[in-house]
Simulated scan of single mutants.
Amino acid sequence: MILPAAMILDAWFGEPDWLWSRVPHPAALAGRAIAALDRRLNRGTYRRAKGVLTVFVLTATAALTGWVIAILPDFGLIETIAAAILLAHRSLIDHVRAVADGLRISVRHGRDAVARIVGRDTTGMDSADVARAAIESGAENLSDGVIAPLFWYAIAGLPGMMVYKVVNTADSMIGYRTPRHAAFGWAAARLDDILNWVPARLTAALILLANFAPHHWHRVPNDAHQHRSPNAGWPEAAMAPLLDISLSGPRSYDGAMQDFPWVNPTGRKDVDAGDIDRACTALWRTWGAALVIAVVLALL
């Protein structure tokens, strides 16, 4: 029952400041390692090969660490705590709900809150843009921060979960098509796409099933394929018709407006704090469905 226990621990405690203000979070440690390898290896020639080597070192270290923790003679206690730390459902809900709380004060407060969870420009956002960004982040991170780690734990135990998390962290740091990282971050980006392929689609299905809306599935594949990411579009494409809103669409990065297509283009575009609340309810229901599945798998 390690996985269900880890899910409940994460949902109850989240990421307590009193702990992570005193000791570095494992994701922060992974980030430091990735940054160090980036500084040392991302130069000169053969950058793609060096990026492959970087991913190999990171994943081998993560798998070995997970294996060592899993074999400790402690009746699974440390493994349960480790798995809980690698999940991020409660913190996801807290961050998304904070945007709704901010919007109820002012658009500026909403922008400040959403800037903590998205990478796009926020200074020119109106209230609908802010709410839409929060819901998109919630849907995408449900896949990256909850369902995908659970999936890889079910497939390969704690080593699989740790490998997924370090690859996902690497992709968020170096997996960009910029002059500096297009070659060096290629392996991290491609491996992250592979590891998220099944979880992203599973997340979309769970969102609709857990919220009693499987009839919306026929819209999901087409809308998901409009997204610039091969995976992030799937949970967004499920959340949008569930709430009867449009997601994605035009947004600004680094001062340049990008004309991205709408997900569920016929949905409402006047998204507000109430829609964020409804999205959080949907996220909790999806988490509940995942918990039921984890319990069934543990019993089997």
Rank of each mutant, 00 (worst) to 15 (best):
P250N: 07
L206I: 06
P159T: 06
Y164W: 04
L158H: 12
G175S: 09
G160C: 01
L243T: 10
R201Q: 07
A279I: 09
L72C: 11
L53S: 05
I85A: 10
G51V: 07
S143N: 15
D223A: 14
N42L: 03
T65K: 03
G175N: 08
V52G: 10
A83D: 00
A49E: 05
V163P: 02
R278Y: 04
K269L: 04
M161C: 09
D38L: 13
P230M: 08
A205L: 12
F260W: 10
D193E: 11
A148Y: 13
S246A: 13
T169I: 02
P214K: 07
V57I: 14
D101A: 03
H225Q: 11
R108P: 01
A256Y: 08
N264R: 09
L87G: 04
P235V: 03
L29N: 08
W67F: 07
P241W: 13
Y164G: 06
W284T: 12
D121I: 10
G255Y: 02
G124I: 00
I78L: 15
A27L: 15
V296P: 08
L3S: 01
G267M: 04
D17Q: 14
D17A: 15
G255Q: 02
T122H: 11
G138Y: 12
L291T: 11
A115M: 12
T45F: 09
E140S: 12
E236L: 13
I135Q: 06
D272P: 09
I69Y: 02
L29P: 02
F13P: 08
P230W: 09
F13N: 12
F13Q: 13
A28G: 06
T123I: 10
D171M: 01
L206F: 08
L206T: 04
M7W: 01
G138V: 07
I2F: 08
I293R: 08
